[in-house]
Amino acid sequence: MREKVLQLLEKALKDDPSLFLIDFTVTETNQIRITIDGDNGVTVEDCIKISRAIEHNLDREEEDFSLEVMSAGVSQPLTAARQYKKNIGRKLKVQTEAGESIEGELTDATENDVTLKWKTREPKPVGKGKHTVKKEAVVPYNDIVEAKVMITFN
């Protein structure tokens, strides 16, 4: 069952290259769960299209199953390089392997790493008081434990 669903899923995603797979599971009881994202977001119609492409090519008489196709939620961590690229300009909170927590604007996302920029208040090098300093960090994907988009309300 898993292999057939995966083939159908890959074909459906190939038909719409702006969509990409985030997560795919098939349980022992044939509960199929698919999470997708898109370069331009994901609509309900996108989920229905992927669901139909799979469901219409499986035979319930042969094997019973349940199918759930959903979009990656805003509260879910980023897992694919394409997700970082579509979130350039947004604020991220990144936890690194070294235990560091970085909150900053995502300014670049390459195939290997992301660039975050932020401002912070630090003690002046000479004299009393603090001044604002611009910081930047380039973090390789394999050093990221978790990255989430920070939701801000203006």
Rank of each mutant, 00 (worst) to 15 (best):
E28N: 14
T29A: 14
N30G: 07
Q31D: 12
Q31C: 15
R33C: 12
D37K: 04
D37G: 04
D37N: 06
G38F: 01
D39A: 14
G41P: 08
C47W: 01
C47I: 04
K49G: 06
K49S: 09
K49V: 03
I50F: 02
S51R: 02
R52K: 07
A53V: 04
E55D: 13
E55W: 04
F65Q: 06
F65N: 10
L67W: 07
V69G: 00
V69Q: 01
V69A: 00
G73W: 11
V74F: 14
V74I: 15
S75T: 11
S75H: 06
Q76G: 12
Q76Y: 07
P77G: 14
A81E: 09
Q83I: 03
K86S: 00
N87P: 08
N87M: 13
G89C: 08
R90P: 03
R90T: 14
V94M: 04
V94F: 08
Q95D: 14
T96L: 11
E97K: 13
E97P: 00
A98V: 15
G99F: 03
E103K: 09
G104R: 03
A109M: 14
T110S: 10
T110F: 14
D113N: 14
V114W: 07
T115L: 06
W118I: 01
E122C: 00
P123G: 06
P123W: 01
K124M: 00
P125R: 02
G127D: 05
G127L: 06
K130Y: 03
K130V: 03
K130L: 05
H131G: 10
H131Q: 11
K135V: 00
E136K: 08
E136Q: 05
V139I: 10
V139T: 08
P140I: 08
Y141W: 13
